[in-house]
Design a protein around this nucleic acid. Structure first.
Lengths: 225, 225
DNA sequence: TAGATTGTTAATCGATTAACAATC
DNA sequence: TAGATTGTTAATCGATTAACAATC
C-alpha cells in the first residue's frame, strides 16, 4: 500500500537517444530510395546493408518509431517516411530564430534543407550594425536588442545560437526569459537553462576529437609495424 | 594449446566513443578556466558540476586519457590540458583539404578555432569557375580536377567533404584512391570506404531529430495536462 | 510450399554509476 | 587530524545482438 505514483493513461516509454539519432539517417536514405528508385517496399536487411547497420537494429529502431511492416515483404517506403515524420514531429513546421550571423550563422541561414525537417528559420539577430537590416540567405537580420520582444510576440519555440562563446549564455538567458522552448546551441560552451528547456548541443570539437584519436591510433599502428 | 593470437607488447584497450566525445568538452572548459581564472588545480567534482556530468564519469574519462591526479588536490589544469592534447593527437597539426565551397564549406574555411585542435585546412576545392582562384577564409580555392594529384603530392591525411549529397561519394572515392587517411563528411549521405579509412559523419539532421522529438513530447505533455 | 522477413522475447555486451580503500 | 579527493573494483543499467516463433 505504498504510495506508488500512477502513470497517466499512456505509458511513457523512454526513447533511446541513439535510436533518435539514427532515425534521421534512415529518413534521408528512404527519401532517396523513394524519389530516385520509386521503390515501394524495403526490408531491414537492405537498409542495414546500405547504411552499415545491423538489420536487427534497424528493425528495433523502426519499432520504436511505431512503424509496422509486413512479414516477407518489408515496410512500405512511403508509409515509413510518414511514420518517421510523425514520430519526430517533422510533419508540421516549427518557427525558429537564429542569433549570431557570423560564418556559421550565415551558412545555416542559407541552408534550404531544414524545411524538410520541419524547421523554419524566420529571422536572424546580430549586434553588428553592418549586418542589421540586411538579408542573408533570404532571412532578415534584426538588432539583437529586439530579440526578447520578438520571441514573445511571435511565441517562437526554437532558438539557434551561433554567437561566440563569450556571449552564448547571455543570449540563452534572454531566450529563456522570453519563453523559448528549445535551444540549438552551436557555441562551444555548455548552456545553463532550467530543466524544462530542451538544450541540444552541437559541438564540432567532439566530432573532431573522435576522428583525431582514430587517426592518431591508425598512424601509430602503422609506425609500430 | 589452442592457437591464441598473442597481443603485441601493448594491450590495446578499447576507447569508448562517448568518452572520446566528452574529452573535447572538458578540454574547452579547462582552457577557459586556465585562461580566465588562472586556476592551478581542479577536481572532478567541479568539472562535473559546471558541465552537468557526474564527477565519477569525469574521473573515468580522464583516466582513459591517462590523466593522473593528486588525492585531495585534484588535477593540475595545465597538465590536464597537455594530457588531453596528447591523447587526442591535438599537439601536432594535421593538414587537410576541404572540398565544396558552398555556405557550409565557406563557414568551415573561415573558422579559426580548428587550429586549436590541430587541424589545418590548407586549401579548398570546387567545380565552380566563379570560385576557383579566389581566396575564402584566407584559403585558396582550387579546381576540383586537381584534387587527386594534390592529395598525393602533399600526402594529405584528412579530407573534409562539404559537397551536396549527389557528389559526396564520388569525391570520397577520389580521396581514397589518392591515399587519404580520414574523411570528415558533412554531406547527408553515408560514405562507403575501405575499412582502414576513418570516416567521421557529421549529420545536422540527427541532432535536429533529437531536439524535434523532445520538443514534440514536451508540447504534447503540456497539451495533455 | 519454401523462404524471407517481421515481431517478440531472451542473452550479451559495454557504458554508467556506486562503493570503498588509499592518500595528500 | 579530518575531510576531500583520487584510484580501483564491483554493481547496475540500458543498448545491442541473438534466437526463434509467426506470417505473408
Amino acid at each position: 500500500m505504498a504510495e506508488i505514483e500512477e502513470k497517466k493513461s499512456e505509458i511513457i516509454k523512454a526513447i533511446p537517444e541513439p535510436t533518435l539519432r539514427r532515425l534521421p539517417m534512415y529518413y534521408q536514405y528512404l527519401k532517396r530510395m523513394h524519389g530516385d528508385k520509386k521503390l515501394d517496399f524495403i526490408s531491414c536487411t537492405q537498409i542495414g546493408n546500405d547504411l552499415n547497420v545491423l538489420p536487427i537494429q534497424v528493425r528495433k529502431d523502426l519499432q520504436v518509431a511505431d512503424a509496422i511492416g509486413k512479414p516477407k515483404l518489408g515496410y512500405s517506403v512511403g508509409e515509413l517516411l510518414n511514420t518517421i515524420e510523425d514520430f519526430l514531429g517533422w510533419n508540421n513546421t516549427t518557427d525558429a530564430y537564429l542569433v549570431g550571423v557570423g560564418n556559421l550563422g550565415a551558412a545555416l541561414l542559407g541552408y534550404q534543407g531544414f524545411r524538410e525537417y520541419g524547421l523554419n528559420i524566420i529571422a536572424a539577430f546580430d549586434t553588428d550594425d553592418e549586418k542589421i537590416g540586411r538579408e542573408i540567405g533570404g532571412k532578415r537580420v534584426l538588432s539583437a536588442s529586439k530579440l526578447y520582444e520578438m520571441i514573445k510576440r511571435m511565441s517562437i519555440k526554437i532558438g539557434i545560437i551561433t554567437v561566440p562563446a563569450s556571449t552564448a549564455q547571455e543570449i540563452a538567458d534572454i531566450m529563456v526569459k522570453a519563453g523559448i522552448h528549445a535551444i540549438w546551441n552551436f557555441s562551444p560552451v555548455k548552456i545553463n537553462a532550467p530543466p524544462d528547456i530542451i538544450v541540444q548541443h552541437e559541438n564540432l570539437a567532439s566530432s573532431l576529437g573522435v576522428l583525431s584519436k582514430k587517426l592518431a591510433m591508425a598512424i601509430k599502428a602503422n609506425t609500430d609495424k
